[in-house]
């Protein structure tokens, strides 16, 4: 399997361990990652200028198309926005024309057949749960994990096609594949609070705190994410707290179960 790795803006600068662990795990599972000169996915400008967001997204996908690759991103916001842009291009011929013209100025063609995938579905469906399970040599038996879904991959499901938006199972299945136990927690599908952090920090904090408390009440020993934004949010609201619920990125959990060293997965401990 070959993919162009789309890291987005946050992972390299703010959550480098996510890149390290993603590369380590996928490399072992036979997924070959290629690096292309990608830029911003367009998500940050989506609400202020929709067209600018679509152009930014389309340009990235055009780069992948030129290299003959599909896109894999570990970021749920990038994933959501790239798929969102694909949908807007599909439904709006006028927009399609203008974007194509902008791409042409850079010698790129409108991408029509690039598939954009998030890390989790690639693991669960591309690599396959059985293959993931088969690669586990050090099962995390007894570890109680709260899997946080993250909004922009799951919804709107008509656009993202990530999993059943009402009762997803993909993430829990991947957690179970590592031998760990996936706890049921009521707020697992709720927002982490990151997108409104700038506008209303106290409210954003309260949303995130509520989620962490909910996961803890459900008996979770570790909160696992698969998105840099969610990860950063939960880390920052728990910073300096003695009762902080430990955080992990999914490829770190999987990597440990595959017998990799914490160091090779960007884990300090």
């Amino acid at each position: 399997m070959n993919y162009a790795l789309f890291l987005g803006c946050k992972i390299p600068s703010k959550v480098p361990a996510y890149e390290v662990s993603t590369r380590a795990v996928l490399g072992r599972l036979g997924v070959v990652l290629h690096d292309l000169p990608f830029d911003c996915c367009g998500y940050p400008v989506r609400s202020l200028d929709r067209d600018a967001s679509v152009v930014a997204a389309a340009r990235n996908m055009a780069l992948a198309a030129r290299a003959g690759l599909d896109v894999l991103t570990p970021c749920k916001c990038c994933f959501g926005n790239l798929r969102h842009a694909q949908r807007l291009l599909d439904e709006d011929a006028n927009l399609r024309e203008r974007v194509a013209a902008a791409l042409k100025a850079e010698g790129l063609d409108l991408p029509t057949s690039v598939r954009v995938e998030h890390l989790l579905p690639v693991l669960a469906r591309g690599v396959g749960l059985e293959a993931v399970e088969a690669a586990v040599v050090a099962p995390r038996a007894g570890l109680r994990v709260a899997a946080h879904y993250g909004c922009h991959a799951l919804r709107p499901s008509a656009v993202t096609r990530f999993d059943n938006p009402m009762a997803p199972t993909l993430f829990e299945n991947l957690v179970r594949a590592t031998g760990a136990q996936a706890v049921e927690w009521p707020r697992r599908l709720e927002c982490c609070g990151e997108p409104l952090h700038e506008a209303n920090p106290t409210l954003s904090d309260r949303i995130a705190q509520g989620k962490v408390a909910d996961a803890r009440e459900a008996g979770a020993q570790v909160l696992v994410t698969a998105c840099p934004y969610c990860h950063m949010r939960f880390l920052s609201i728990q910073a300096g707290r003695p009762d902080a619920l430990p955080m992990m990125l999914y490829p770190q959990l999987l990597g440990l179960a595959m017998g990799m060293t914490p160091r090779s997965l960007g884990l300090d401990a």
């Binding site: 909004c151 799951l154 409104l196």
Partner: peptide
Amino acid sequence: WDCATCYQCQENCPEGIRVTD
């Protein structure tokens, strides 16, 4: 501006209204 853009409203709307969008 406080909207979390989590798309819960859009996904759950019984009439399929694209509330978040």
